[in-house]
Simulated assay, not measured.
Amino acid sequence: MATCDHCSTHVSERFVRVFADDSGAVRACPNCSANAGIAEVMRKRTQRA
């Protein structure tokens, strides 16, 4: 079961295919970031990691 690396909330496999980084990590989900900016949040969190 896939989860958000930031808040540990379950995310669907479809969400993972669209928003995960190259290693398969989901660094932001709809529960911990605004839907409109989710890709931006993921990019920023990936850069910090």
Rank of each mutant, 00 (worst) to 15 (best):
S8L: 14
M1S: 15
A34F: 03
I38D: 04
P30F: 03
R27P: 00
M42T: 13
S12R: 05
A39Q: 08
H6E: 14
R48E: 10
R17G: 01
P30V: 04
R17Q: 06
D21H: 09
T9M: 14
A49W: 02
M1A: 15
A36H: 03
H6S: 15
V41E: 09
R43I: 09
R43T: 13
C29D: 01
A36T: 04
Q47I: 06
C7A: 10
A28V: 03
F15R: 00
V18N: 00
D5K: 14
R17V: 04
C32F: 09
V16S: 01
G24P: 07
S33G: 03
F19E: 00
S8N: 14
H10T: 11
A34N: 09
P30N: 01
A49L: 07
A39T: 13
G37Q: 05
V26C: 10
G37I: 06
A39N: 08
S8T: 14
H10A: 15
M42Q: 15
S23L: 11
T3Q: 14
F19D: 00
R27A: 06
N35Y: 02
I38T: 05
R43E: 12
V16A: 02
A2M: 12
F15N: 00
F15A: 01
A2I: 10
S12W: 03
G37R: 09
G37H: 09
R14P: 00
S33E: 01
A39W: 04
V18K: 08
C4G: 05
T9I: 12
H6V: 09
P30K: 03
G37W: 06
S33W: 02
T3R: 15
R14E: 06
M1V: 15
H6Q: 13
N35A: 08
V18Y: 02
A28W: 00
G37T: 09
V26A: 06
A25M: 11
A2L: 14
A25K: 14
A28R: 00
A28D: 02
S8D: 15
R14I: 03
A25N: 13
F19C: 02
A36R: 07
F15I: 01
D22F: 08
R14Q: 08
D5T: 09
R48M: 07
A36F: 01
A36N: 03
A20E: 04
N31G: 01
R45V: 05
D22Q: 12
C32I: 08
A49M: 07
V26K: 00
T9R: 14
V18D: 02
E40F: 07
S12N: 07
D22N: 12
S23D: 14
M1G: 15
A20Y: 09
